[in-house]
Nucleic acid binder design. Structure first.
Lengths: 329, 329
DNA sequence: TTAAAATATGTAAACGTTTACAATAGGTGA
DNA sequence: TCACCTATTGTAAACGTTTACATATTTTAA
């Protein structure tokens, strides 16, 4: 079944059928009803490709996920949930793309997608420059690029709050576990950490800045190394994400260092496992699902030429569980 | 840039350019090289929609995810990872679709997708019948529908093995926590449980069959209820997935019932949180990523008209951790 | 009453590919 | 030399929509 046959059956031109399908004004009520009835009768749906070939714009949004998303499955899923919820209300399709090579500009050219949502792209992702130059629309989640639309939380404030929580518990020797170096989140959190120590006049030791790469295993190894060495050990560890915090907890458990009695541990993200860690993890909640939803909303509002907020900062929450406690030194 | 311009620049017809792009035989070496050079020069990629409009077949596969995938994010992600890895080697695209209403048959018609992968669809999903009738190709993961291609593990055997593990530890009073009732997995595991008790001549008590709906919270509630009641309590609990097992552990922890000293707990799936639960969970490992990969492989082999195994049963593993131990009664 | 505006529909040219068919050139064996 | 095959390329008609433009009808306003 194609539009021609529908038109024939209705005794109108293809243009009229097309207009009915696309909800154009200035169509006689009778005509519209008639056409819709025939469409219904044959359960006709316009050919997706023909449609997109003749149209300039295409109702497809791409979600660009970091090349290695294995470590952040929960994060990704929650964002996806939010996007799905929003996209479900529309006729848009979602294309899932792993960010590799120079695939993305091609996506726009080749598949005429109308926009892309980037999930925590590394800083200095060259693709963004290309896209912006070509006036392609994209939304960033947990990232920042010039004045591009973005969804985020207040990373700096959240980090300050969780560090303050540790400080208020009496901790003065605070270590940090960093994520990967080209992550905006990682950079901002580390910067805030350094500034915080400076402000509070706390010791900033090089060997208390641990490189964890956002991974559990890496973190496990570096923490074990730190506590097995002769150097002074911290009374609190702030991990830049919960997965690494889990690594910290595992290392400390094996070293028989009680948490939080000897060492307090805090994370970031509040992922699904965090309440079930031993002990349950103190962390910062990021509204991932909401972030996905808002990203899609911005996308849609842009496509509808509505004016939009270029920057949406969502609220975070400090979640205090049993992995942090009073400092004993 | 379109094929016409490329053709012009090369001094050949569009047909020739098309033939080069599609790797046709009988093209002069010089011509091919020349065309490829120009394509490279302008970084040209054929228009996706024009291509698919004229072609009969389309290189897009849909992944149909259950309507409510919130509880099974890890599961989903791993499968997705496998599919992505496989699809990455090809020019195929992946369309992500939430299974709702009658959207799916339309997908085939409207977007000409060449196949769909269903992630654990409920038994008696009407869509499958429709698709099969219309000779549409689909692959099932963790499900079964007539003789349709499917990827699964040996559910029955895995369940028997985990129950045998409990039995060998001396457990004779074994409870089960069920998933949702229209899940094939849930049904098969319950059936195997009943059969196992019968074979071993163990007591099969109605109130030891708990309804957990694959959810943590629901399970937490029913377990708390069971152990607060006057009825006889089991010495081992088998949860049909790890998320529910986490719920069991949480409930028992709050009731101060030591695991595994008083009650042993086993799960199913081996999701990411399982090793970090307190105590780490004994469970059955499902090779989710591999399942996704194989599903995509079957899809591709079908599309290449290769003959294919209709049913791929992947190996599972019993993972014994500290949540199960010797029965003390 | 009439010109202008608004409504309602049709015509046909895009959109950018693929591919059936035609055409040309060169080679091969009888 | 001729008939025939193979290799190589071109021509032009699909594929199924959308939409600019044209046309016809009805309404509006002065």
């Amino acid at each position: 079944m194609n539009i021609k046959e529908i038109a024939q059956e209705c005794g109108v031109s293809t243009a009229t059928v097309s207009r009915v399908i696309n909800n154009f004004p200035h169509i006689h009520k009778k005509t519209r009803q008639n056409v819709l009835a025939v469409i219904q009768k044959y359960n006709y749906t316009p050919n997706f490709f023909a449609r997109n070939l003749s149209k300039k714009t295409v109702e497809t949004v791409a979600l660009i996920i970091p090349e290695n998303f294995s470590t952040s499955s929960y994060y990704f899923m929650e964002v996806l949930k939010g996007i799905s919820a929003e996209i479900k209300k529309t006729d848009f399709s979602l294309l899932l793309v792993s960010a590799e090579k120079d695939k993305i500009p091609k996506l726009f050219a080749e598949k005429k997608i109308c926009g892309a949502i980037f999930l925590a792209p590394p800083v200095n992702t060259p693709v963004l420059k290309t896209l912006q130059k070509n006036k392609k629309f994209f939304v960033l989640i947990n990232a920042k690029y010039k004045n591009s639309p973005r969804i985020d939380i207040n990373n700096v404030q959240a980090t300050q709050e969780i560090l303050t929580h540790l400080y208020n518990l009496g901790h003065r020797k605070i270590a940090i576990v960093m994520g990967v170096k080209n992550s905006l989140n990682a950079i901002e959190r580390l910067k805030t950490y350094k500034k915080f120590l400076l402000t509070k006049n706390l010791p900033l030791k090089k060997h208390w800045i641990l490189q964890g790469n956002f991974q559990l295993e890496t973190t496990y190894a570096v923490v074990k190394k730190l506590f097995s060495s002769k150097t002074e050990t911290p009374t609190a560890i702030f991990a830049e994400n919960d997965l690494m915090a889990a690594g910290v907890l595992k290392a400390l458990a094996e070293l028989k260092i009680p948490v939080p009695e000897k060492v307090s541990v805090a994370g970031f993200d509040n992922i699904n496992i965090s309440p079930y860690l031993n002990p349950p993890l103190t962390t910062v909640n990021q509204p991932f699902e909401k972030m996905g939803q808002m990203a899609m909303k911005i996308m849609l509002s842009f496509l509808n030429k509505e004016k939009l907020n270029r920057e949406i900062i969502l609220p975070h929450q400090i979640i205090i569980r049993q992995s942090t406690g009073k400092a004993n030194e």
